[in-house]
Simulated scan of single mutants.
Amino acid sequence: MRLEALSAADLPACHALFQACVRALAGTVYTEAQCAAWAPARDWSEEIALAWQARLADAWSCKALVPDGRLAGFAWLKRNGEFDMLFVAPWAARRGLGGRMIEELERQAAEAGVTALHVWASHASRPVFERAAYRLLRPNRIIRQGVAIDNWLLAKGGWREEES
């Protein structure tokens, strides 16, 4: 699989992959209700396009493609050092692709002088980030559409959570 930079033209396919990945977690590490709150079943729209384009504009990014051109995964790392997205298609999982994308985005960030990194990792992505030497800081809970979803705060490179 080859890694390439993402462009705005890739975002509809990324959105579809994001929804498929989250739905694949239902019944394994998250409930159906949690998955529906995290990734509501919505078709690609102008509203979603504008929001995702804004997020991508402030990030380093990559996509993973198989030889036939299908999207196998995508990731982006915000310029403030926060991993915002890391998704691998269920059919491409467990081949080291998540780790390769993390490594590529860390390289891009380091070239720009950003080495203090963090992520709010799902139950599914936590092991991928731990294999990439991120350390667990604490469990976390977010509320989306009235539904509690647990995740984990992990960090690398000296990143520290601001005290409230």
Rank of each mutant, 00 (worst) to 15 (best):
M1H: 15
A5H: 14
A5Y: 15
L6W: 06
A8H: 10
L11C: 04
L11M: 08
C14P: 01
C14E: 05
H15W: 03
A16K: 01
A16V: 01
A16E: 03
L17A: 04
A20M: 08
C21R: 00
L25G: 13
G27E: 09
G27Y: 06
G27R: 04
T28N: 12
V29A: 09
T31G: 03
T31R: 07
E32H: 13
A33C: 10
Q34F: 04
A36C: 09
A36G: 06
A37N: 04
W38S: 01
W38K: 01
R42Y: 05
D43T: 05
D43Y: 07
E46S: 13
E46V: 07
E47D: 13
E47W: 12
I48M: 05
I48G: 03
I48T: 07
L50C: 14
A51F: 05
W52T: 02
W52Q: 05
A54V: 01
R55E: 05
R55F: 09
L56E: 06
D58I: 02
A59V: 00
C62D: 02
C62P: 08
K63A: 09
K63T: 04
A64D: 01
A64H: 12
L65G: 02
L65W: 11
V66N: 14
P67D: 15
P67Q: 15
D68H: 15
D68I: 06
L71C: 05
A72W: 03
F74G: 00
A75S: 15
L77K: 04
L77H: 00
K78C: 14
R79Q: 15
R79I: 08
R79V: 08
E82R: 10
D84Y: 08
M85K: 08
M85R: 05
L86P: 00
P90S: 14
P90N: 07
A92D: 15
A92M: 14
R94V: 09
R95P: 07
R95D: 10
G96Q: 12
G96Y: 14
L97N: 05
L97E: 02
R100V: 04
I102Q: 00
I102W: 10
E103K: 15
E103D: 14
E104L: 11
E104I: 08
L105H: 04
L105T: 05
R107M: 11
Q108L: 07
Q108D: 11
A110E: 11
V114M: 05
A116C: 15
A116D: 11
L117R: 04
A121L: 06
S122L: 08
H123L: 14
S125F: 01
S125G: 06
P127E: 09
P127R: 09
F129Y: 11
F129R: 00
R131I: 01
Y134W: 07
R135W: 12
R141A: 14
I142N: 09
I142Y: 14
I142F: 10
I143D: 12
I143R: 13
G146N: 06
I149N: 05
N151V: 03
A155P: 06
A155I: 04
G157Y: 03
W159P: 02
W159A: 06
R160S: 11
R160Q: 13
R160K: 11
E161M: 14
E161H: 05
E162H: 13
E162D: 11
E163M: 14
E163I: 07
